[in-house]
């Protein structure tokens, strides 16, 4: 009896401790969501611990979604993410296929080359000059192409491919399937969870990219949501947001609470991540989520 009581006491302490850790993450995010949905007169007075909106109002979202520069940036982010993701998947899937073919003559030199590419980072200035020399500066393809393949994700995908039984490849070969047919009809369906995993990882880094977009996309009309977010939320540059907006909808703008507007911009930028997150847990974190104490 005594040990049992002691045990549950330690469980209570442990639970409380971990609950506090999670609250440091849950409360600020809910606070941002709550402020973004509150009326400006209320949101200015809301503290950092409020997690429910006060006087529900969509004004912040009306401003965000009627703002030409923000909408343009959102469209650019979607474009760069979707096109970039397609290139990521296509290149990574085919490279992983090639590198997992048994007996590939050049496998070793190719792997050594790729791992060296992963370990050695030439740094931002040499890369910047290459983008300039290739004439990609100020072009959205710079951001799309410069992140085309991630060796780390390639190696993850190779592990999934290797788990596909070799008899299946042999059967496809006997049936006269070419490499492309094998890749799309045989490997894709069988390595589905691997492809899902790297797709999510790529999607997240694509969507979150702000640094290269910030320096390579020299024209405001090409820029992405994360770049605008950084200007507005981090650098506190309200002028760029207000400038155009003022002319456009003066009355509503006079009411606005900038911090709440910042919150709304943050919320818009994390929605795709939140939509993707359940899939990450399902495909990547499945084992650790199901695991735990072995009885």
């Amino acid at each position: 009896m005594r040990t049992k009581f002691k045990f549950s006491l330690s469980q209570t302490v442990l639970t409380l401790l971990l609950l506090i850790v999670t609250l440091t993450m849950v409360v600020p995010v809910l606070n941002i969501i709550a402020k973004s949905f509150s009326a400006p007169e209320e949101s200015v007075r809301m503290g950092g611990l409020a997690i429910f909106p006060r006087k529900f109002d969509l004004i912040n979202y009306r401003v965000v979604f009627s703002h030409p520069a923000l909408m343009r940036a959102l469209a650019n982010s979607v474009f760069i993410t979707v096109v970039g993701l397609a290139i990521n998947i296509l290149l990574t899937c085919s490279a992983a296929y090639v590198l997992t073919r048994p007996g590939l003559t050049l496998k070793k030199p190719l792997m050594v080359f790729l791992i060296f590419m992963m370990l050695f980072d030439p740094g931002m200035v040499p890369e910047y000059l290459v983008i300039k020399d290739l004439g990609l500066m100020g072009n959205q393809w710079s951001v799309i192409l410069v992140m085309a393949v991630n060796v780390y994700y390639l190696i993850i995908l190779m592990r999934y491919y290797q788990a596909v039984p070799s008899e299946i490849y042999e059967a496809a070969e006997i049936d006269g399937a070419g490499h492309l047919t094998t890749l799309f009809r045989v490997v894709f369906p069988l390595a589905k969870s691997g492809i899902a995993t790297i797709t999510m990882f790529y999607a997240v880094i694509r969507w979150n990219e702000y640094f290269r977009a910030g320096i390579y996309l020299t024209k405001t009309k090409d820029t992405t949501l994360q770049v605008i977010l950084r200007q507005f939320v981090i650098l506190g540059d309200t002028a760029s947001i207000v400038g155009q907006q003022n002319l456009f909808n003066y009355n509503e703008f006079a009411r606005i609470d900038y911090n709440a507007l910042r919150c709304a911009t943050i919320v818009v930028s994390i929605i795709p991540i939140l939509l993707l997150y359940p899939l990450v847990l399902r495909y990547y974190a499945k084992d650790v989520m199901a695991g735990g104490v072995k009885e």
Binding site: P28, V29, N31, N208, L229, V233, I234, I270
Partner: peptide, 14 residues
Amino acid sequence: FLSWVVIAGIWILA
């Protein structure tokens, strides 16, 4: 999975 821009935004406010 949040970008550092978003995290910094959240932290600056908090």
